[in-house]
Design a protein around this nucleic acid. Structure first.
Lengths: 356, 356
DNA sequence: CTCCTAAATGCAATCGATTGCGCAACTGCC
DNA sequence: GGCAGTTGCGCAATCGATTGCATTTAGGAG
């Protein structure tokens, strides 16, 4: 909560007021100006007017233009039952991957004449439920759930309810979702490190209840196990997503004996945290330690030691989520979509040292 | 635009449909169950019911609870003229500073019973106008403009219009805003580098049309000029915000002769780009080059060479913006707020080398 | 010139919540 | 017991856009 608005040393400068002029034009104003009945005006303003002479359509549209008319979405929503709003639930927008996805999502929604409302669920069940409730109260036409976790009941509640939805980013069995092929991404990472000769490796698995963390880790371990070098639980640190969590994971993994020659982190930001911890432990990424990230956020390439990562088209993920949701709103059948991952090798991964 | 939804190698898996059950309860349903008139039910459900017996209030609220009633915001908006929605315009949410601000903003808005709708303006006048139009069509109760730039007419249009607004993050003369004291932040940075003995320094100024970039740069140069070591334009690279822009700035600044001993970057992300370019130019941050950022995003501390930065309470900035906007919506006079910046020294800044 | 059909438009109800006004019942006071 | 003032609640209008149905107009056929 926010109590003392001006706590600390925040300074207040200047002052200002603002005038509040006339009300916006209504459909009736437009109709009057065009000399027709409001219903005719309404039909003329439809995307594809039916049974209205083109002359009238033009006259009405001209009137609307001169009056700077904009349809009142609240009134339209009340009448039609469609708010042309979609709700989006993410863990946190400060995660650049989610923010990128939301960028694509927002643009696509706007292109379809929809608005998007995002809320940070903070991976907290109470907050999530509360926020979803607020979205539902707005008679949202659909929901994109980007913060699903295993054991999550919210998705099931949505499935049982009246509101169309799709999952994004993270999957959940039995629900339609748009995500990257995380298991395959994990395999790509594993093959890359194997090719460099790494046998004794660790994983910073972030959140095992999120399909992203779980599947990337699973794909990675699967390949290593098949190659005869299984990765035991002791070398998998599941501390959560984010820089701070990565630091904890790095600290855990730095303590493994004998020392790991490479670490796969299921998220670039988390990888930065791992990097920090490893530095403090005296390891040098790109020299005596190979480090991989995931998602290829723009920043990784500019790090002092550029970070090897696995990339997917996250912007498209947002756009496709919207497209799928639109299909669902229209009552069409939809199927889950998996986006292909691509390995992006950089200098943070190097061949294993003799004896590593 | 989004054309071929399943371009590339995206895979489609499974299939799923969703049932669409009964409509949500209306106020009339609640009234009927409670045995009162809808108007009475409406009054009973108000935050502070007036002229209604407490017994009736209880009965109505119980009915609402059992029916799982949620007020239809579209209908309420139509009747009252208040949508209880605020619009937010940012350059891009992938900027973690903006995303952080939005986090605070969103939480505070929710606490006040409002919803927030964000749009990415992309610093593109056309996109911004279009998006703001879409927000206005939703009869937004207010706007928080976080992407103001010098010469911007959008803010003036808002001031002339009927919709209350406040600027956030960036300031503009004559408009109420909530921002950090950027000039002071620039001065803090300058004093820090001066104390370390740096005389021959450069600035990565990002976007000079954004008050953040401009004021931080100005404050910095002001202190250096006063100390007798003015920073000429040739040592100020204004290439924009972001990692890629930072790389361009870094390339420019790396070419300065004689070599700079320190660089102040007005944004942490941009600083990462500068870092990358400097690495490629053979410079080592924290050794033969001191580098400063701004905003202190969580990541800076975990970089291989932890980044010295200037921090402000960005989350509060979002919350205060909402509080000010609420005041304005209520017709109260409001004043701009400046948040104090704090220097956070880390190892990317070191004393100047002899002869530097 | 009349009749029929189709095209163009008007009429009025409707979505769900809010609120000014009015009526009835009740309280308190002299 | 009567009157003023209060309290609790119902009535009906209203916000702005949409849409099924009715009505008018135009055009073509016979």
């Amino acid at each position: 909560m926010f109590h003392n608005r001006f706590s600390g040393k925040a300074r207040i400068i200047g002052a200002n007021s603002q005038r509040r002029p006339s009300r916006p034009a209504t459909l009736e104003d437009v109709a009057r100006l065009a000399g027709v009945h409001p219903s005719t005006a309404s039909r003329s303003l439809a995307e594809r007017p039916v049974r209205i002479s083109s002359a009238t359509v033009e006259r009405v549209r001209a009137a609307a233009r001169t009056l700077n008319y904009r349809r009142d979405t609240a009134a339209a929503a009340l009448r039609t039952g469609n708010s042309r709003l979609i709700g989006v639930l993410v863990p946190r927008l400060t995660d650049i991957v989610l923010a990128t996805m939301y960028g694509g999502l927002d643009a696509e929604a706007a292109a379809q004449g929809y608005g998007a409302v995002v809320s940070n669920g903070l991976d907290d069940p109470l907050v999530r439920t509360e926020r979803l409730g607020a979205l539902l109260a707005r008679r949202i036409d659909g929901v994109i759930l980007a913060d699903a976790r295993q054991g999550d009941t919210l998705a099931d509640e949505l499935a049982a309810g009246a509101v169309p939805y799709v999952l994004a980013m993270r999957t959940l069995p039995g629900h339609v979702s748009v995500s990257t092929d995380d298991a395959e991404g994990g395999r790509l990472a594993a093959r890359h490190l194997l090719e460099l000769g790494h046998r004794h490796v660790g994983v910073a698995a972030a959140d095992p209840l999120a399909s992203t963390g779980r599947d990337r880790t699973a794909g990675f371990r699967e390949v290593y196990a098949a190659a005869g070098w299984p990765v035991p639980d002791a070398r998998v640190a599941a501390t959560g997503f984010g820089v701070a969590a990565g630091r904890r994971a790095g600290t855990e993994l730095a303590a493994v004996e004998p020392a790991l020659s490479a670490v796969f982190t299921v998220d670039d930001y988390t990888a930065v945290g791992v990097m920090g911890a490893m530095r403090d432990a005296g390891r040098t990424v790109g020299a005596d330690l190979s480090l991989m990230g995931y998602n290829d956020v723009g920043l990784g390439a500019e790090l002092p030691v550029p970070l090897t990562s696995v990339r997917s088209d996250i912007d498209s993920m947002g756009r496709i989520s919207v497209a799928l949701l639109m299909d669902r709103i229209a009552g069409r059948e939809v199927s889950s979509v998996l986006l292909p991952p691509v390995l992006v090798p950089r200098s943070s991964t190097v061949p294993v040292r003799p004896g590593g």
